[in-house]
Simulated scan of single mutants.
Amino acid sequence: MYALRRDGARLAEAAAGHLAAPVPSCPEWTVADLVGHTGAVHRFWTAVGSGELTDPSGYAPLPRPAEDGLIEWFTEGLELCAATLETLDPELPRWTWSDRKDVGFIQRRMAQEQAVHTWDGLAAAGRDEPVEPALAADGVDEFLAHFARAKETAGLPEAGLHLHATDGPGEWWIRPADGGWRVDREHGKGAVAVRGTRSDLLLLLWRRRGADQLETFGDLAVLEDFLSAFSRG
């Protein structure tokens, strides 16, 4: 839970004194909305991870506090989430919306959710700071395993999409197969290829980076068709 605590603290620090600022990567939000959303996510998954919440259909989050208490509320929930999850066996069964139903999914999801929203908050403060590279590579893996595979593959050509990290290990070749996705962590000649840092590849998938900010080859319409299936999250 080191990454969750680290990146949560970075978001709280960046948000202090800037709660009314717009968040360019989440156009309908202010920084207060970003902090409130992330804090609510912490509390929801804390309840699920602890076993307190087994049926999310009946879950009703409490309203977030006023802005003068928002960052304190956020940091309290952040620590509660990290402290709860770090004590649990990753293989312990728990409800999740994915096909992986254990605490390990929640631990990973919290680190990844926090990393991307910390980037949002830093960017709102004029600080374009990358996601830590190893965490970003794991984020690409998580995105392709749990978010991309929930979407239809219609329109993606057989050659698919290739992602190539330029700052360390990381290659992903995404192709349609048997009505779903096949993701191989190897080099391949896709219909479109994208090269960038591990952070930039993750931010591209989450619609924080545009393709024009990375190095691309091939049919960019294929990339846009693929990305258009996903929200900013």
Rank of each mutant, 00 (worst) to 15 (best):
S231R: 14
H117Y: 00
L203K: 14
H164Q: 12
L62R: 15
E224I: 00
L227I: 01
G121R: 04
L202V: 08
G168M: 08
H37P: 07
L214Y: 09
Q114C: 13
T38V: 14
W181R: 11
Q107Y: 03
P65T: 03
G155M: 00
D99H: 15
L34I: 02
A115E: 12
D178E: 15
A165Q: 06
L202T: 14
E129S: 08
L223N: 10
L144T: 14
E132D: 10
Y59R: 06
G139P: 13
T166M: 14
T46K: 11
P176Y: 06
G180V: 09
A83V: 00
A12E: 03
G8W: 02
R108Y: 01
R10N: 04
S231F: 02
S228W: 05
G160M: 02
S199G: 13
S228T: 07
R209N: 10
E86D: 15
S199R: 06
K189L: 13
G36M: 02
V103N: 04
R149L: 08
A221Q: 15
V183M: 05
L214C: 10
P90Q: 04
R5Y: 03
L205A: 07
V23Y: 03
P133I: 05
E129W: 07
A83S: 15
C81S: 13
P157S: 06
G104N: 01
E72S: 13
Y59L: 04
F74S: 08
E76W: 00
G179K: 10
P56K: 09
C26Y: 03
L205Y: 05
A66T: 11
L201N: 05
L88G: 01
L205P: 10
S228L: 04
